[in-house]
Design a protein around this nucleic acid. Structure first.
Lengths: 355, 355
DNA sequence: CTCCATAATGCATACGCATGCATTACCGAG
DNA sequence: CTCGGTAATGCATGCGTATGCATTATGGAG
């Protein structure tokens, strides 16, 4: 089970010998801004090329105490929102000369199980997408000087930064849209109930509905899972008092719900029921669904995430920073249109209720 | 731009001092199978816990010459096939106590740009999904003793293992299915033309059609991209001699094509045109699409990938291994049914032409 | 032509851990 | 009671790089 003899690579000393210089000179040749004569550097680079030398990032990390690796913990990869985020995250981190160590395959909620792994690799930063971290571990990170950014989740704890959108306002906006559309019976298909994102969206939705006199919301839980969302939809949509307006906590579940509504239950959308989702993710935009959905500006969110990381890594100051973005209700065909409030902005139809 | 003073973590020497033992003893306490007295180990672990010690994986890598990191290079994350693969890859690697370093955001074709990065981190293995590697670099890996596995691509080069399905046979099967359905005019929407996967699928398709006397295939190129595939579909489907049978190189493009066919061109599927895809990926199974598609057993493919990696890492023998799996044509509603050959297997309807 | 400031280079060491080797402790057999 | 064998432990060193410090080379000013 272990006979592997990995050939040890070319070292800086070997290059040094070849080039007739010291190991230090080799090191400096690969360090931007180091004090090294151009011709020496040229000699070194030539020798390095001949030998196929590449600096050993592992050894470098040992001395610099910087790994140039950012850990990303991500769940729900079957929700295209996250692969999108992942791809851009990888791109931006690469631009900053950082690598991305991915941890996946665990559920939402607590990332504690993988925490040891992260720490062992002395990552320079941590991004937790669609998941959170226990209070004890957050503080351990802060103590160790490792910046942590929650993506699309929040927590009240300090020392942990976050990047989110105004989910409460988003929920309100959805309610206003559905109310303006003249709907009467409101439903909600929840994500993971413990997630801040889900709680806030529901809170805003409920709030705005209550202000309009609608205090009853039919709720089922989908846990951000396609199959569970479909089961929830079956329950909700076969009731005698079936809602005529349904807010689904994200698009990943919304398209699943639409499949059930249309193909299992034979409902017409939006004639029989209006459906509004969240995220404005790929499939929601596809013609077969055309989900009316609260968009999240994920590009800017990822940019903010990387900005926070880089700033904290470079300054060494771990001060929790909370970036909150605005969403926009993108209007498509999955929900009845209100008489007014739908406007065209930058090629998209969005809902902006008049004041 | 750099004032960060990362607090250096707790070291094994500190733990040793605390526990009143040597640094070696601490190291051995964390090394399974090492010679260490149970009570000594207990003392060490206690001290380690008090101090919050975690072995430094970076330093360990330096001495063991093993990073326990596998690099994964992956393109097309917007095609759910790949996130699926990624998730499982992460899961299986974690089970083997390996970490996953992700490189993404680059196009199909050549992974050379990120190659330096990989090598600098002395990864123990490399998985190239939906992309390939130049011949020179492949050999460099082999020379360095780093196993490389191509996932869903092949190459004639030695020293590089691969995991694929029988794409040629898959293409044939699709052709047979469409022929059995009585179609007359055949089209193909290609993926990236330089990819082995695309070439093989088309070759099999063309071969089987030719055997049946159909030598003309209308071909447009979609490059595995949604927008390009839709543009290709518009061209192909507005021709006067529009095909009545269309094979699309993967499902990611197939659903895009269906959207164009149905919602832009008002075609009925499968009445006006039959569409067959490849991969049997998430959206293809959704009721709104119901794509008839060649499935790829991605779970087993990922398992094989990890098996190859582990075997080569542990043995140190880098001998190219090629694992080839069989697909199955899963029959849904996007293509006209043939009179015979569709059978029910394990809850799925598949096409298995009689001999 | 001399002298000094600066750039370039080498030397030596540290980073945190694993591991071969030597040493010590321990236990059972004779 | 002695001896040999094994388990447990410590010591010392190496892994490949970065970097502070000392030293040497260089070039320009006076």
């Amino acid at each position: 089970m272990d006979g592997g003899v990995r050939k040890t690579g070319v070292t800086s000393s070997q290059v040094a010998q070849r080039a007739g210089v010291s190991q230090s000179a080799v090191s400096r040749s690969f360090t931007p801004g180091a004090s090294i004569a151009p011709e020496t550097r040229a000699k070194v680079l030539a020798a390095a090329k001949e030998l196929g030398y590449r600096p050993n990032a592992i050894a470098r990390s040992l001395t610099t105490n910087r790994s140039r690796i950012v850990a990303v913990v991500m769940a729900y990869l079957d929700n295209l929102f996250y692969p999108d985020v992942l791809e851009q995250l990888g791109r931006l981190l690469a631009k900053e000369d950082y690598r991305l160590l991915l941890f996946t395959g665990l559920a939402d909620g607590d990332s504690d199980p993988v925490f040891d792994q992260l720490m062992q690799y002395r990552v320079d930063g941590i991004v937790l997408a669609s998941t959170s971290l226990s209070s004890a571990l957050s503080e351990e990170c802060a103590a160790a000087g490792i910046p942590v950014v929650l993506f699309n989740r929040t927590t009240e704890r300090d020392a942990v930064s976050s990047v989110t959108t105004r989910n409460r306002e988003g929920g309100r906006r959805v309610a206003e849209f559905l109310l303006a559309g003249g709907h009467e019976r409101f439903g909600y298909i929840a994500g993971l109930e413990s997630s801040s994102t889900n709680r806030d969206r529901l809170a805003g939705y409920r709030e705005a509905l209550a202000e309009a006199g609608h205090t009853e919301i039919l709720i089922e839980v989908g846990n951000y899972d396609r199959a569970e969302a479909q089961a929830a939809a079956r329950k909700l949509l076969t009731r005698p008092d079936r809602p005529d307006a349904l807010f689904v906590a994200n698009d990943h579940m919304a398209v699943a719900v639409m499949d059930v509504a249309r193909f299992e239950l034979g409902l017409s959308i939006p004639e029989d029921i209006s459906i509004v989702g969240y995220d404005d993710v790929g499939p929601a935009r596809w013609d077969a669904y055309g989900v009316t959905s609260m968009s999240q500006p994920h590009k800017r969110m990822v940019e903010a995430t990387v900005e926070i990381l880089m700033s904290q890594i470079n300054s060494g100051e771990i001060e929790a920073e909370h970036r909150v973005f605005n969403g926009e209700l993108v209007v498509r065909t999955s929900a009845r249109l209100p008489a007014s409030g739908v406007v065209e902005v930058e090629g998209r139809r969005v809902f902006r209720p008049g004041r």
